[in-house]
Structures are given as structure tokens and as C-alpha cells.
Design a protein around this nucleic acid. Structure first.
Length: 973
RNA sequence: GCGGGUGUGGUGAAAUUGGUAGACACGCUAGACUUAGGAUCUAGUGCUGCGAGGCUUGGGGGUUCGAGUCCCUCCACCCGCACCA
């Protein structure tokens, strides 16, 4: 009886389906455990072998936890809104709903093929109206809320209105505009529009302005992704930065809570560090500088180094700063306008990354230094970003690298405030030493100067201590079609939530079907073209849609109660499942998705909808599986000839990688040989043209489908069949083979390096595939996909199978009693597998299974007492195999998943002696076995009496004898 | 540029707390069985040296009886940087 994996696997997949083995109940006496994968975006390329890495890990853990007695929630769904589907629709006219549906069907088929234990009855899709109804509902909760800084929580906006009616905003300064100040009377006197505008500045979901990439030629806003090298990816049209009215989430109000509650999470330090850096809390001061010649105008800067204020030799404003045009002098107008135009074409990334080339422009204006009364020039430069701090800095060249480079480049005199610590070549950025040339700060130690400086600044009435966050409010609008519509209607230009308007309509506000996906007028999204949808009974609808992270910010809650029509999830359900116990996904989501989910969870908690404040208790990062691309090298004829001729009739030559390498090294023999071959081909194609001669050898490289390559060797026949133009290709081989070039790239359709798990499952089976992905290495390490090791894992499974079954006679398991040696192998394996699963070390767990099977094979063990627990033990990794053995070999009648995970007996897992490495001066020279309970003195005597050790000691006295019980022995001489 | 990660044989990797570097596999070499082998089994396989031995965890330096592991420094590659999801 052979190991017929496809028969076995299909049988049990059907069995699990028929028996609803994976159905999860919200009503259980068992303790709950919630395991979640980051749900995929269903792309047209289908699932590739990189996706399941995390899914397999979570599936192993889910099955393990279930067998450990937990009620395990392990759902799957789809992040189904997004740009690629819309882009595809633009190109092919197919509706995103149609392609998304198709892609999801394919994904589900591929996922099921691998044998995951998802309860598909709980599937969610962010693009389903039944789902985004609640995305819209949560958006409205945020819209109807403000952040109470004193209570440190979100509250209903109605309570803020009540406060305004009673006392104005004196006790609740405006997060958008700290100068905004009104009392109850002023509030009462405001018009409806003024009141709504004021409230907008408090709402957690609010409108403001942000810069986007605007492409005039395409008439649309582009994502960062769609802008390549400063032009649009589609059509290479010019793009500029443009201000647009947008929705935002006021995540900055939560910055401190998002920061402090990181401490409670079981995430990697790296992940927490990335979030901390993203939030970017810094303590400093805001300082006001009066602009000369403008009595009512000043520049406010934020600085983390107010202690260096006497070194402020110039000011730099972001080119977008609102004051730039006002203060620029007539002489500088032209230069400033030109510079601003240049900056408009630059991305923020470029602006921050560019340090070698310093750019900037003088405005002609000056501020007065508040302490020295000196006049200080005002510049603008791209290295100051409008969105960070106040959009203006005081530049201290002697204390900051970029300011230093700027001053050197524009020859601005530098004031040294650090005495001998500053030498004139580099800025002094340390925070030790004393200040000089700094008025009242002279002689003060840098470690204390910040506090002194802030006090003086406050006393002078020119500023205050200020906590600044690098994090900005989250842009929440997209000028796109394929996303959640906003439940917002404008009446007389004022945005209202649909639930504030009489007959405003029920949620969801459904995304209308459209026929074309072209942008609307004035950079509006495609929805602007759907007139009847935009203009309901009253007002006009918001035509932006929500971004990709809207649906993914709360999906983990929906799985708890996915079909609920009256709530996003029932209180019972969220109180039972609570936060995700284990979340598995890639580090690429470190700051986006994970931060937004945390925000939504905190807001829902504040508003009393859920009873926990963090979404993901433990986070395990999975590495990326990159593609391993293969290249072929095609000859480009570089010839001399007297007259033109049709090169098209010359054969296409492909040169093996080794030949290319030799040509690159100018290997003469190779070059002569290849030239001869090409000349011969030319002669055959043009027998009468002696004038055509190969000049030199040129070539280009192109990706070749990895399925046509075995390792590095190209399957030449398959290659010829791949595309008609390759049918007559000729090859210049090395050792009779065509060797391809190789490179690690992202797995993507266009690079022909996507490996479909279906192919591997059909060749080796899902169990082999699952174990192989785990065997590749640690779960959190990124690596290119490499298939050549899969045979080893497949061989292992077949070897394990042979413990249970014989090709000729079928099952061969006996009821004989197990020996101590066999029990030792089993129990050590049980112990190691359990420990490895707990610490997510799945690759070493697979190794342990291999060791176990190798040892049991040597022991010729076919005993039920050993093999039945082993079959149960491997269930999380190879569920199909385990079920086959459990039910068919051992005759059990319920699923192996309802069995307890085996426990180990300490009696068989502890040794009483150890083979010690014995080192002399740290170099291992001998091995000696000692009982673990042996006294050190006895061991020392035995070691020093050993011949080999004596030889290495060369008669020298022992300086130190190191004995680490159970580890090693070292004799120091 | 900033932030985070990774680097160990020909290849994927292991070494859980500073304690025998290379477990387990792939590949390769030789052999057995076989009509056959892309099945299975046996032996070998970091580099170097006839050998005793020496060398070896990206490079350089340090701490320690002992460093892949800790510290400093440099290099290479990967991920993120706010409209890809």
C-alpha cells in the first residue's frame, strides 16, 4: 500500500467538509483562543507560495491549541477593496466587483487545497455591502465624536455641544487651531455653518486639506505607487503636488495612548520600536520670531533644542508655508516662485533623502532674534516639511548636520555656541559640554540648558514648552471608485452624516454600479459622474471613497459575529472572543494597518462598544518569501554592413550565463567562438552578403518563467513552446546545458517568478507542502523561494508512512509492548514538538519529526503504542496524513482533531549522564562521560588523569578548572 | 536620508540561558538492490593538511577560561517611510 497522497488528501478534505469539523461556536465551556492571519488582498495573480507561510504557521498553532482543549477561532476573509481591481477595470472594462469575486473564488480554492481549518461560514469581505455597512457605521461613530483631552478618551460630539453652550471652548482648546477661542455667547451667536465648521475642528473624523499627486494629463489623483521617477506610471505624464479637501482621522489625539499601551503588548521589540518612531514623540519648545516689517506677522518654529537658540543663524520655512508669499521681497519673488515650482515636482521621500545636494532660496525677509535682537534671514528649503511641527525651523548650523550643510552651501555665517567642541567642519550634535556665545545660557551644561532656555522663552512671552509628534492625522479620502462610500451628504455646502438628515437614508450607502471608472471633474473620484447617486432628495453626496485600511481596521471584530445585521458584532460575541490572542502577518504592516486598527479599537472602546482597548495581544511576524527570478540572455546583432538588410530574418541566439560571464571577462577564445557562430548564422540567412560581419557581442536579459527552469538549467524544449517567437530560438550552451542567470526579486506576475501552491500540492501533496514551507527556516526570516529541498520532506513523509504500512501487505502496525529505547524516542519528540510549537519554531519541529522517524526506522518499530501517539502529534503539520492513520490504520471513528495532544513522560526525556566536551584553554580536546550527579572533585580528578588531557596540558599546572554541569569542562593552564 | 531587519558549508538551515559550530535536509561522491531509476538502502561530505594539527559563523577590533551569541566599528542585502494592500 503506497502513500497515495492525492487520494488520501481529497478524501479527508471532503470528510471535514461533510462533518463541519471546522465550524466554531460562540457558545462553549472551553477557554477561547483567537488566532488571526492578516487577510489577503485577492489579486489577479492568485495566491503564491509566499502567502501561505504565515497561514500554515497559524493553522498549525490553531490545530495545536484545539487539541490542547481550546475553543479556537481561526477565520479567513478578504481585503477586497483596492486600487489594482480598479486599475484593471480601467484597462479592461471589467467591473471590479466581477474580477474581485473571481479572484476570491480562486483564492479560496487555493487555500482549501492546502487544507486550512477555516470556518468559512465566518468569512468576511470588506467589499460586501453587509460588511461595509458597519465600516460606514464606525466612521460615523468617529465623525460624531471628539477627543476629551482631560479624560483622555473619545466622547460624543453632543456632549461637546452642551459644553460649548455652557462655557464656550475655554476648557477644551481646539486640536486643529489653538488660537480658536470663544465663549458661550459667541457660540450661540454662530450661524449653523460656523457651528458645524467649528465642530469639524474637533471631530475624530474630520475634513481638512492635504497634498496629493495630481496628474493633469490623466485628470486624476495618483497614489505614490503610481508615480515613478517623478512622472505617472501610466503614460509617463508630469505630476505635481496639489492641495485637496480630504477626510482625516484624528489619530494624533491618540498618539500618547498608542505609545504607552505598546508596553502591554507581546510584540517584537523591533515592531514596537517602529511604531514608537512613527509616532515620533519629541519634547521641545515652540518659539515665536517676529518678522521685520510685519508688525502682526511672526514665524513659529518647533525645536527640540531650544538650548541652541543663540546659534540660530537663519530660519527655514517649508516652501508651502502660508507666509512665504506674504514676506518675500520684490527682488526675491521670481527666485522664490521658481524654487517653489521645483519643489512641487518632488516627493516627500526625495525631499528627505536628498542630502548631498542642498537646495533652497532666500525670501529677502528677516526675523528679529528675540534675545540678541540681531536680524536673521528667512530661507525656504525642501528639507523642511510643511506637515511636520510648524513647518518652519530655526536653523542652528553649529549644532545640526543639515543646517550646517545648508549654511556652508549658501555661505551663511555660522555662530559657534559650543566653544572648542565645534571645529567648523561638522556640526556638534552631542548633548554634553557647555554653551558659549549664548547670552544667559553661557557656561551652562548642555544637559541642563534645555530647561533653562524654555523658562526664559516662557518668561519672555515668546513661546512655550511643547510636545510634538511626528505622526500626522491619517488621510482618509481617496478619489477612487472601488472603496467604501462615505455616509456623508452636503446640504448648502455643509457636510452632514446621513443619520443627521431626515430621510437621510439607512446604512449602507451602497456603492453604485458604474460603467466607466474615469475620474470626475476637478480631480473628484469616479462617483462624481454618477449624477443620480450624487444627488439624493437633499443635498449632494460625498464622492470620495474610503482608503484600503478602512475595512481592515476592524475586520477582526466582524469574524466574531459575521452575519449580524443589527450590530457590527454583538456584545456577547465581542465579550467572549475579545482581542486577538495571536496575530500573524508581515512587518510591512508595522505602522500602517497595525496602528490604524489600534486606533479604531481604542475609539470603539472609549465609546463603549467593546470592552477591550487593544486589538492584537500577541503578534508574530512572518518573513516575506521573495521570488527567485531566472533570466535568459539574447544576442543583439551588432554588425557592420555596407547596405541595410532585414535583421528580422536572423535567428535569435540565446547565450548561457557562463558564456555571458566569460564575454564580460573579455575571454578571447569565447568571443571568437561566439562571433564565428553568429557569422555562420548570418551567412546562412544571407548567402550573398559577405559585407555583413559581427562587430561585437551585445545582448539583453529578460525574465523567463521559473516553471521552465530546473534549478538554473533551462528546459530548452519548454522554452521554445512558451511563446511563438521562441520556437526557432538557437542556443549557445555550456557543457550541453543552458544555464540561466538568477536574481532575488519580489514575487510578481510581470517577473514570471510566481510559484503557485496548487502546482506543488498536485506534485507532492498538501502535507508535504505545509511541512516544507515550515522546514524552509524560521517563520520570521525573509527568503527567496527555493524548491529543490522539497523532495527531502516528501521522502520523510513516505518514510514515516512505511512505519505504518507496507507496499505489498498494507497496514503493519502491531500491538507489541514498546521498548524503553522506543519510548525514549517518542517522548523526547513529544516534548520537543510541543516546545517548538509554543515558540513558533516550526522548522526545528519538522527536523525533530525527521529525527524521530529515522530513529524508529532504525529500531524497526511498528508498534501501535509508539505510532498512534506519533500520528496524533503530527496532526497540526500534516493533518491529512494524521487523519488517515488515526481513522484508517488505528480504526478510530472521530476526527483526530478532537483528540488530546499527547503528553510526554519525564521518565523518558531525562538522561542521567552526559558526554562532556573537555577543553584545554578553551579548545575541545576530548570527550568524557560523567554521571550528572557526580561531584566536581571526582570529575576533576578523572579529567586530569586522562591521557589526552595530560598530553595537551604539557605538564603545566592548572590555573583554573571550569565545570558547568550538563554543559562542558574546561581546563585552564 | 530616517527607522527596522538579516548576514553561519556548494544550498536551506540548527545551536532555546555566553559553553562540543554546522543538528535536520538539499546537492554531490562512492557503493548495494534493480530490466529500469527521478524508488529504496549503506558509507562519506565546512575549508586546509600525508599526518599530528591548523583555520572557520559578512570585514576589522574588544570583553571573557570560553563569543555565531555581548560591546564598538565598517560593509552588503531586504522591508517600511504616510494614496499598493
Amino acid at each position: 500500500m503506497e502513500y497515495a497522497f492525492s487520494t488520501i488528501e481529497n478524501k479527508w478534505k471532503q470528510y471535514w467538509k461533510n462533518n463541519n469539523t471546522y465550524r466554531v461556536s460562540n457558545d462553549s465551556s472551553k477557554p477561547k483562543y483567537y488566532i488571526l492571519d492578516m487577510f489577503p488582498y485577492p489579486s489577479g495573480a492568485g495566491l503564491h507560495v509566499g502567502h501561505p507561510l504565515g497561514y500554515i504557521a497559524s493553522d498549525i498553532y490553531a490545530r495545536y491549541k484545539r487539541m490542547k482543549g481550546f475553543n479556537v477561532l481561526h477565520p479567513m476573509g478578504f481585503d477586497a477593496f483596492g486600487l489594482p481591481a480598479e486599475q484593471y477595470a480601467l484597462e479592461t472594462g471589467q467591473h471590479p466587483a466581477v474580477t474581485t469575486e473571481k479572484n476570491i473564488a480562486r483564492y479560496k480554492e487555493q487555500l482549501d487545497n492546502i487544507g486550512f481549518c477555516y470556518d468559512w461560514e465566518r468569512e468576511v469581505r470588506t467589499s460586501d455591502a453587509g460588511y461595509y455597512k458597519w465600516t460606514q457605521w464606525i466612521f460615523l461613530q468617529l465623525f460624531h465624536s471628539w477627543y476629551d483631552r482631560k479624560q483622555q478618551k473619545a466622547r460624543n460630539i453632543k456632549e461637546l455641544i452642551a459644553i460649548f453652550e455652557k462655557e464656550g471652548n475655554n476648557n477644551n482648546p481646539c486640536p486643529d487651531d489653538d488660537k480658536l477661542c470663544f465663549d458661550a455667547k459667541a457660540w450661540a451667536a454662530m450661524s449653523e455653518k460656523e457651528k458645524r465648521d467649528t465642530l469639524m475642528k474637533y471631530r475624530l473624523a474630520f475634513q481638512g486639506y492635504a497634498e496629493v499627486w495630481w496628474c493633469e494629463a490623466l485628470g486624476t489623483v495618483l497614489a505614490n505607487d503610481e508615480v515613478v521617477n517623478g512622472v505617472s506610471e501610466r503614460g509617463s505624464h508630469p505630476v505635481i503636488r496639489k492641495q485637496m479637501r480630504q477626510w482625516f482621522l484624528r489619530i494624533t489625539e491618540y498618539a500618547d495612548r498608542l505609545l504607552t499601551s505598546l508596553d502591554k503588548l507581546e510584540w517584537s521589540d523591533a515592531m514596537k520600536e517602529m511604531q514608537r518612531n512613527w509616532i515620533g514623540k519629541s519634547n521641545g519648545a515652540e518659539i515665536r520670531f517676529d518678522i521685520q516689517g510685519f508688525a502682526d506677522k511672526h514665524i513659529t518654529v518647533f525645536t527640540t533644542r531650544p538650548d541652541t537658540i543663540f546659534g540660530a543663524d537663519f530660519m527655514v520655512m517649508a516652501p508651502e508655508h502660508e507666509l512665504v508669499d506674504t514676506i518675500t521681497t520684490a527682488e526675491q519673488k521670481e527666485a522664490i516662485a521658481e524654487y517653489k515650482k521645483y519643489v512641487q515636482s518632488r516627493s516627500e521621500r526625495e525631499r528627505m533623502a536628498e542630502v548631498k545636494q542642498v537646495t533652497g532660496c532666500f525670501t529677502g525677509a528677516y526675523v528679529t532674534h528675540p534675545f540678541t535682537r540681531k536680524q536673521v534671514p528667512i530661507w525656504i528649503s525642501e528639507y523642511v516639511l510643511a506637515g511636520y511641527g510648524t513647518g518652519a525651523i530655526m536653523a542652528v548650523p553649529s549644532g545640526d548636520d543639515r543646517d550646517h550643510a545648508f549654511a556652508k552651501h549658501f555661505e551663511i555665517p555660522i555662530t559657534n555656541i559650543f566653544g572648542s567642541n565645534y571645529h567648523g567642519d561638522f556640526a556638534y550634535t552631542e548633548k554634553s559640554g557647555t554653551l558659549e556665545n549664548s547670552g544667559f545660557l553661557n557656561g551652562i551644561d548642555l544637559s541642563k540648558a534645555i530647561d533653562v532656555a524654555i523658562r526664559a522663552i516662557v518668561d519672555a512671552g515668546i513661546g512655550k514648552a511643547k510636545v510634538n509628534y511626528k505622526m500626522r492625522d491619517a488621510g482618509f479620502s481617496r478619489q477612487r471608485y472601488w472603496g467604501e462610500p462615505f455616509p456623508i451628504v452636503y446640504v448648502n455646502g455643509i457636510p452632514y452624516a446621513t443619520d443627521e438628515i431626515e430621510n437621510g437614508g439607512e446604512l449602507p450607502v451602497e456603492l453604485p454600479m458604474v460603467e466607466n471608472y474615469k475620474p470626475g471633474p476637478e480631480g473628484e473620484g469616479p462617483l462624481a459622474n454618477v449624477t443620480e447617486w450624487v444627488n439624493p432628495d437633499k443635498g449632494t453626496r460625498e464622492t470620495n471613497t474610503m482608503p484600503g485600511y478602512a475595512g481592515s481596521s476592524w475586520y477582526f471584530l466582524r469574524y466574531m459575529d459575521p452575519k449580524n445585521d443589527t450590530e457590527f458584532a454583538s456584545k456577547n460575541a465581542t465579550d467572549y472572543w475579545r482581542e486577538v490572542d495571536l496575530y500573524i502577518g508581515g512587518t510591512e504592516h508595522a505602522v500602517g494597518h497595525l496602528l490604524y486598527s489600534r486606533l479604531w479599537t481604542k475609539a470603539l472602546y472609549d465609546l463603549g462598544h467593546i470592552s477591550f482597548e487593544e486589538p492584537f495581544k500577541k503578534l508574530v511576524n512572518q518573513g516575506m518569501i521573495q521570488g527567485s527570478s531566472r533570466f535568459v540572455y539574447r544576442n543583439l546583432y551588432s554588425v557592420v554592413s555596407k547596405e541595410d538588410f532585414d535583421q528580422g530574418s536572423l535567428p535569435l541566439f540565446y547565450l548561457s550565463k557562463g558564456i555571458i560571464d566569460l564575454i564580460e571577462k573579455n575571454d578571447e577564445a569565447t568571443i571568437i567562438d561566439v562571433k564565428a557562430k553568429l557569422n555562420t548564422a548570418i551567412k546562412i540567412a544571407f548567402p550573398n552578403r559577405d559585407d555583413i560581419q559581427v562587430l561585437d557581442i551585445k545582448y539583453n536579459s529578460s525574465n523567463v518563467d521559473v516553471s521552465l527552469v530546473n534549478g538554473l538549467e533551462l528546459d530548452i524544449e519548454a522554452f521554445k513552446k512558451w511563446r511563438p517567437e521562441y520556437a526557432d530560438a538557437e542556443f549557445i550552451l555550456e557543457d550541453g546545458k543552458y544555464i540561466c542567470g538568477a536574481e532575488v526579486e519580489k514575487m510578481s506576475k510581470s517577473k514570471y517568478n510566481v510559484v503557485n501552491p496548487d502546482d506543488i500540492v498536485s506534485d507532492f501533496g498538501a502535507d508535504t507542502f505545509r511541512m516544507y514551507e515550515m522546514f524552509l527556516g524560521p517563520i520570521d526570516v525573509s527568503k527567496p523561494w527555493e524548491q529543490k529541498g522539497i523532495e527531502g520532506v516528501h521522502r520523510f513523509i513516505k518514510k514515516m508512512w512505511r512505519l505504518y504500512a507496507n507496499e505489498q501487505t498494507g497496514w503493519i502496525v502491531t500491538d507489541e509492548a514498546a521498548t524503553d529505547a522506543e519510548l525514549k524516542v517518542l517522548h523526547k519528540t513529544i516534548k520537543k514538538i510541543g516546545e517548538d510549537i509554543e515558540r513558533f519554531s516550526f522548522n526545528t519541529a519538522v527536523s525533530q519529526f525527521m529525527i524521530c522517524v529515522n530513529e524508529l526506522t532504525s529500531l524497526n518499530c511498528h508498534k501501535r503504542a509508539i505510532l498512534e501517539p506519533l500520528a496524533v502529534l503530527i496532526t497540526p503539520f500534516a493533518p491529512h496524513l494524521a487523519e488517515e492513520l488515526w481513522q484508517n490504520c488505528f480504526g478510530n471513528i472521530t476526527t483526530v482533531l478532537d483528540t488530546q495532544f499527547p503528553a510526554y513522560d519525564v521518565k523518558y526525556t531525562t538522561d542521567n549522564s552526559k558526554m562532556y566536551p573537555v577543553a584545554v584553554n578553551g579548545k575541545t580536546r576530548a570527550e568524557m562521560e560523567f554521571a550528572l550527579d557526580m561531584e566536581q572533585a571526582a570529575i576533576e580528578a578523572a579529567v586530569l588523569a586522562d591521557e589526552t588531557i595530560q598530553k595537551w596540558m604539557e605538564g603545566k599546572p592548572v590555573k583554573k578548572f571550569i565545570y558547568v554541569k550538563g554543559k562542558m569542562i574546561n581546563v585552564v593552564i
